[in-house]
Simulated assay, not measured.
Amino acid sequence: MDFTFTEEQQMLLDTTRRFVAKDYSFEARRQVREKSAEGFSRDAWQALADIGLLSINVPEADGGLGGSPVDTMLVMNAVGEGLLLEPYLTSAVLATHAIALMGNDAQRGEWLPALASGEKIAAFAHDEQASRFDRMAIETRAWAVGNGYVLTGHKSVVTHAASADVLVVTARIGNDGDMGVFLVPRDTEGVRLVPFKTVDAVPAGEVWLNQVFVPPGALLAADEAGVAAVLDIGIAAVCAEAVGALDKLLAATVEYARNRKQFGQPIGKFQALQHRMADMVLHIEQARSMSYLAAVRCNAPDAAVRNKALSAAKVVIGQACRFVGQQAVQLHGGMGVTDELDVSHYFKRLMAIELQFGSTDTHLEAYAAQLA
């Protein structure tokens, strides 16, 4: 297969990487992480909007660039390289796709231009405690009441929930009805939010919906297949982010091995350590290939083909996250887990990605079931 990027795609990747190199150094990220009340930089978010990265997943008919999953993959590569704390995944990928795929003309017109310009932020609120091993096991309920719906439930680890202007909430309509997707402004009465930071410093929150009333126009669609399609796009996106982080972790490890001396020579000359770094390269290249597969297949019309490819990619990339992360920390020694070194931050993010959208073991079981 030809994995050569088009000229436009290469320019997109180069533009994103230049932004990360110029405006999002590790020290700049540290300042954002430690000093920003929201846990990310509004200036960086606006800069992403200014160079068009927030409009990639907005259709051309709605004023966006109408990019492909491969375009998203390239941006997420750079997001992983820079360990961006901004809500790109939840707002510019998941929520934007949900509104673009399932929203009507009024909903798309209200939200997509605002999300593309950086004026508004949306948080995709789907995960629950019961959905850890079954992403469609949603207990949040929406009841048709009068001229609208009443939502009740609890959403877990909703990234950037506290900074979102609107929550894109999934809920079962009635007792055993279809899965609906609702636009719920964060300041709606009955919404309770407890913010926190995840182990990889990403802002998140627990969201409780206590008899939250929304008008009928808040319902994007009752479409479980549409929700699954959005989640599949998310899997492909985090796979691409992982590859970017893996590349940076390998580069840092190789550089350290060249400079760290033991017994009068760089430790990179020791054959045992060379073998370990060679194994890191193999895992990363396998992960890169599976990331390409995920990007190509994440919007395939056949759900079975899509699920098989994405589960396979998540397994291979999850294994790479764990192996490469552990090797990088071990080869750096005790300093590999210190907050001052970027290696520990890449390791934490990779461990979070390994569990996001289903763990490696969960997807391995799903892949095996599909083969059976």
Rank of each mutant, 00 (worst) to 15 (best):
Q326W: 01
Q274F: 06
A278R: 12
G325K: 01
L250C: 04
R260L: 10
D247R: 14
L246A: 07
Q327L: 00
A312S: 11
A237I: 07
A278Y: 09
L273I: 14
A294S: 12
F263N: 14
L273Q: 10
L331W: 02
A294Q: 07
L293D: 10
C321P: 02
S311H: 07
A304E: 13
R322M: 03
L231R: 11
A225I: 10
R260F: 14
I317V: 09
R276N: 04
L273S: 08
D232A: 14
Q286T: 06
A294H: 07
Q271V: 15
L250N: 04
A218D: 00
A272Y: 11
A240T: 08
N259K: 13
K308C: 06
S291N: 05
G264F: 12
A278H: 12
R258M: 09
R322H: 08
Q286S: 07
L219K: 05
L231W: 04
A242R: 03
V254I: 11
V227D: 03
K248F: 01
V227H: 04
M335R: 12
H275F: 13
E224H: 07
A228K: 13
D232S: 14
A228W: 06
Q274S: 11
A313C: 06
V243P: 02
A252K: 09
Q319W: 01
G234A: 10
A218T: 00
D223C: 04
D302I: 04
A236S: 15
R322V: 07
F270H: 13
A294Y: 07
L246E: 02
L231M: 15
L293C: 07
M335T: 11
L246I: 10
C298T: 06
R260S: 06
L273W: 08
F323N: 00
A300D: 15
V227K: 02
A251F: 05
C321N: 13
L250V: 11
L282V: 05
G268P: 11
K314V: 03
V254K: 09
A245Q: 04
Q274G: 15
I235E: 09
I233W: 05
E241I: 05
Q330A: 11
A257G: 09
Q271F: 15
L250P: 00
Q319N: 11
Q330E: 11
V316T: 10
L220G: 00
A257Y: 02
